[in-house]
């Protein structure tokens, strides 16, 4: 595909036509009204493949206005290929301002992370969701899972957690860790690390979740209770590292492991690239403060 920076002729603002956007916005409103409930919607074919963020992209397209500033992250970082690609898509089709700074963004589309910086009321966080159904891996049939949600038959989620503890001594779910929203619906937070789960609770920003292939939208309105499932005697815990970020020295952020060579040397750096950069600008230093070269 040849790139053309002058925008895309023959396509509406932000790619989708206005009728489709309205349909998606109606689904979003319903989702906000019933926190954690998966609203079916008429997901469209997008020019990116299913599983690569089409749900998030459709929500972003539906809520984006000309005065918005968009940030796109994947694995916490603005410079991973998928994030670059989606950001490029919206700057081509909507011509909106883009940023890598969490504080400057009004709309943030994310895959697999929540920014470290606390979000505000005037921001919207849009998650890309591969499998929206938290009960799926205990019960693959949709007819049954919808019934289980309706009747709040959630015991089976704890069966999974029980099984983890029995086999490993710990709850072994580390990402896409199921939560209960507003004391009602059990919800898949998308494959964010459980490190990020506590950030969902009582968040001032609106959180929207889009699953394109599975055709579902769900939401957590601002300031909503979100609790991670656990046992009284095995309470929910987030990941901890012995290391700190090698670049900025942060000890409170999610760290990516970077393999340096095949003799086992590795370093740990913030997965949230904006957070790390801002800290370094403020003068924080880690053990290996020099910049790493870009990946080929």
């Amino acid at each position: 595909m040849r790139m053309n920076d002058s925008g895309l002729d023959g396509y509406n603002f932000a790619y989708l036509d206005e009728q489709t956007k309205r349909m998606i916005r109606r689904a979003i409103l319903k989702a906000i009204a019933i926190p954690g409930y998966q609203v079916p919607f008429g997901s469209r074919e997008m020019p990116l493949p299913y599983g690569w963020g089409t749900g998030g992209i459709q929500i972003t397209a539906a809520v984006l206005g000309t005065d918005d500033t968009l940030k796109v992250i994947d694995q916490g970082s603005d410079d991973t290929t998928n994030a670059v690609n989606i950001r490029r898509f919206f700057s081509r089709t909507a011509g909106v301002a883009t940023t890598t700074k969490t504080t400057e963004a009004s709309v943030i589309q994310t895959r697999h992370r929540i920014p470290e910086k606390k979000l505000r009321e005037d921001q919207v966080l849009i998650y890309q969701v591969p499998i929206p159904e938290p009960l799926r891996f205990m019960e693959p049939r949709e007819i049954e899972t919808r019934k289980m949600h309706a009747l709040q038959e959630y015991g089976v989620m704890h069966v999974k957690l029980y099984e983890d503890i029995a086999r490993f001594g710990h709850i072994a779910t580390t990402y896409n860790y199921p939560v209960r929203v507003n004391d009602r619906y059990v919800m898949a937070p998308s494959p964010i690390p459980k490190f990020d789960n506590p950030k969902m609770n009582d968040m001032p920003a609106l959180q929207l979740f889009g699953a394109g292939r599975e055709k579902r939208i769900y939401a957590i309105p601002p300031y909503t209770k979100v609790s991670s499932l656990d046992f009284d005697d095995h309470p929910f815990e987030v990941q901890k590292w012995d290391e700190t970020c090698a670049l900025c020295g942060a000890s409170d952020s999610f760290l990516d492991e970077i393999v340096l060579n095949d003799t086992g040397d590795r370093m740990f750096v913030c997965s949230d690239s904006d957070y790390c950069e801002e800290r370094r600008e403020l003068g924080y230093k880690g053990t290996q403060p020099e910049e790493q070269g870009d990946a080929a």
């Binding site: 015991g155 704890h158 069966v159 029980y162 099984e163 656990d230 046992f231 009284d232 095995h234």
Partner: peptide
């Protein structure tokens, strides 16, 4: 799932939350 989880399922279904 294990034998233990099979037995425990109905307890968890009615709200048991102590492993």
């Amino acid at each position: 799932v294990s034998a233990g989880a099979n037995i425990g399922e109905r307890l968890m279904a009615v709200g048991a939350r102590h492993y």
